Amino acid sequence: MATGGRRGAAAAPLLVAVAALLLGAAGHLYPGEVCPGMDIRNNLTRLHELENCSVIEGHLQILLMFKTRPEDFRDLSFPKLIMITDYLLLFRVYGLESLKDLFPNLTVIRGSRLFFNYALVIFEMVHLKELGLYNLMNITRGSVRIEKNNELCYLATIDWSRILDSVEDNYIVLNKDDNEECGDICPGTAKGKTNCPATVINGQFVERCWTHSHCQKVCPTICKSHGCTAEGLCCHSECLGNCSQPDDPTKCVACRNFYLDGRCVETCPPPYYHFQDWRCVNFSFCQDLHHKCKNSRRQGCHQYVIHNNKCIPECPSGYTMNSSNLLCTPCLGPCPKVCHLLEGEKTIDSVTSAQELRGCTVINGSLIINIRGGNNLAAELEANLGLIEEISGYLKIRRSYALVSLSFFRKLRLIRGETLEIGNYSFYALDNQNLRQLWDWSKHNLTITQGKLFFHYNPKLCLSEIHKMEEVSGTKGRQERNDIALKTNGDQASCENELLKFSYIRTSFDKI
């Protein structure tokens, strides 16, 4: 039985969820670079991206490699990797027998973001014989899940209580170790020597080791999670996991709180800001991140802002960003909400898709409305799209047979046209069989910064309504002859009103 693990408890099935942008060198404390989270699957090609990484700022997932063999891993080693800020997950990587050479110096898994409450997941690794993470000293947050690894031993010899604050939620089941077939031998045991430290858990006094050649490092209890030197002297209180010299914040392997210019500090002093819960960055760093993602459509890219001495992905609820200094300031009234469309555009074809934009005031991208039916549609669209004030790209209304009016965009005031449909149009209306009105132009103002209007096959939309939009939106004169079809717009509506004058002759039985 794995020490510190839980057996036999019912657990939810383990679901495996399925960018080499360097964020800056980590400095003297770390020998390499800070790398983003990685999802490495199918083959070993991307694994080489770990070569210079000291910190993975995010998670590391290595999974679904069915053609790899043990010899493929023999020359692979990433000794610079010290810390993973989120979680480490391995799933069905064939041929991998140990992690001792792959990650010989991995010391800390912070667990800032977890995989279903777990910071370390080893699942269905069919050839893994031992973990071998002999320098792993601290899992700051989260638990361990090690399950269905039929060859995995050296679990009962690990004292997880020396690595985690609590072992109650560890789930370590259905491994070879369960069948008591392992016969784990710690260093020196074969020669009758006791080389590794022994600890007591559940009444068992057991030597602690990761492999037959690597003991588990056990520091004096007084050192807590700070770690200790090879001689057993406690590291500085700002260290986490390990250090090369005692009581020196510049000799830590990793930091308990924050890293700044080669030393570990309790908090980031001005003019620095907390970033990702582990390091200090200056304003320029946060500003660069903001600008890199301002026009990016890459998933996970955030326009970072500053709030409460932190550089964070977005302002919290009730705050909006001051564009001059990136500071989050309290909103006066309802907060603006910028919604970034991942692929640059979004099609609204149902109430469900409209709900995804609920509360958005600025759309960074283009909207395509293609709704053919739905219950209580006008009210639903207004509830979900009615706060949109600005669209950076274009607005396209296409084959939306259920629409009679666009009044559900009740606050839309600006279409920038930074991206144009077919390279020309910022407003595009095609084949809307029941569209009769755009907006009530006596109450609604709309500016279209650039781009043209396109109207074709809107049989109940009168040309007068379209011409009014040209005047109000500032697009009059931009359109070419064929942009607004004269014969297919309003051709099934009563669009022309003329005053009919009647004269009559009164007659009676005795007068003409």
Score class of each variant (00 low, 15 high):
Leu29Asn: 13
Leu29Arg: 03
Pro31Gly: 14
Pro31Thr: 14
Gly32Arg: 12
Gly37Ile: 02
Ile40Met: 12
Leu44Met: 12
Thr45Ile: 07
Glu49Ile: 13
Glu51Leu: 08
Ser54Leu: 08
Val55Trp: 03
Ile56His: 01
Glu57Ser: 11
Gln61Ile: 04
Gln61Ala: 15
Leu63Thr: 08
Leu64Gln: 02
Lys67His: 11
Arg69Lys: 05
Arg69Asp: 04
Asp75Arg: 07
Asp75Tyr: 13
Ser77Arg: 11
Lys80Tyr: 15
Lys80Ile: 11
Lys80His: 11
Met83Thr: 05
Met83Leu: 11
Ile84Val: 10
Leu89His: 02
Phe91Asn: 04
Tyr94Leu: 15
Leu96His: 00
Glu97Trp: 13
Glu97Leu: 09
Asp101Asn: 12
Phe103Gly: 01
Phe103Asn: 00
Ile109Glu: 00
Gly111Thr: 00
Arg113Cys: 06
Arg113Thr: 11
Tyr118Met: 02
Ala119Thr: 04
Ala119Val: 06
Val121Ser: 10
Val121Cys: 15
Ile122Ser: 08
Ile122Gln: 01
Glu124Ile: 01
Glu124Gln: 11
Glu124Ala: 03
Lys129Asp: 04
Glu130Ile: 09
Gly132Arg: 00
Leu133Ile: 11
Ile139Pro: 00
Thr140Asn: 07
Thr140Met: 06
Gly142Leu: 01
Gly142Arg: 00
Gly142Trp: 00
Ser143Leu: 11
Arg145Leu: 04
Arg145Asn: 01
Arg145Pro: 00
Glu147Gly: 03
Glu147Asp: 03
Asn149Gln: 02
Asn149Val: 02
Asn150Thr: 06
Asn150His: 06
Tyr154Met: 06
Leu155Met: 07
Leu155His: 01
Leu155Gln: 03
Ala156Gln: 10
Ala156Leu: 10
Trp160Val: 00
Arg162Leu: 05
Arg162Val: 07
Asp165Pro: 05
Ser166Pro: 08
Asp169Glu: 14
Asn170Met: 06
Tyr171Cys: 02
Ile172Phe: 04
Val173Glu: 13
Leu174His: 06
Asn179Lys: 14
Cys182Gln: 01
Gly183Ile: 15
Cys186Tyr: 01
Thr189Ser: 08
Lys191Ala: 08
Cys196Met: 05
Ala198Ser: 11
Val200Pro: 03
Val200Leu: 04
Asn202Pro: 04
Glu207Trp: 15
Arg208Pro: 02
Trp210Asn: 01
Trp210Ala: 01
His214Glu: 08
His214Ala: 08
Cys215Lys: 03
Gln216Ala: 02
Cys219Val: 01
Pro220Arg: 04
Pro220Val: 05
Cys223Gly: 01
Lys224Gln: 11
Ser225Leu: 08
Cys235Ser: 00
Gly241Val: 06
Pro246Cys: 12
Asp247Ser: 13
Asp247Val: 06
Asp248Arg: 04
Asp248Asn: 05
Thr250Tyr: 11
Thr250Pro: 02
Cys252Met: 04
Cys255Asn: 01
Asn257Trp: 08
Phe258Val: 13
Leu260Trp: 07
Arg263Gln: 08
Arg263Pro: 03
Cys264Met: 00
Val265Pro: 01
Thr267Ala: 14
Cys268Trp: 00
Pro270Asp: 11
Phe275Trp: 12
Trp278Asn: 03
Asn282Ile: 02
Phe283Gly: 12
Phe285Trp: 15
Cys286Leu: 02
Gln287Phe: 13
Lys294Trp: 10
Asn295Gly: 14
Asn295Ser: 09
Arg298Ile: 07
Gln299Arg: 05
Gln299Pro: 12
Gly300Val: 09
Cys301Tyr: 15
His302Ile: 14
Gln303Ser: 08
Tyr304Leu: 08
Tyr304Thr: 14
Ile306Val: 14
His307Asp: 15
Asn308Thr: 06
Pro313Tyr: 08
Cys315Tyr: 00
Tyr319Phe: 08
Thr320Gly: 14
Asn322Lys: 01
Asn325Tyr: 08
Leu326Thr: 12
Cys328Pro: 00
Thr329Phe: 06
Leu332Gly: 14
Pro336Asn: 15
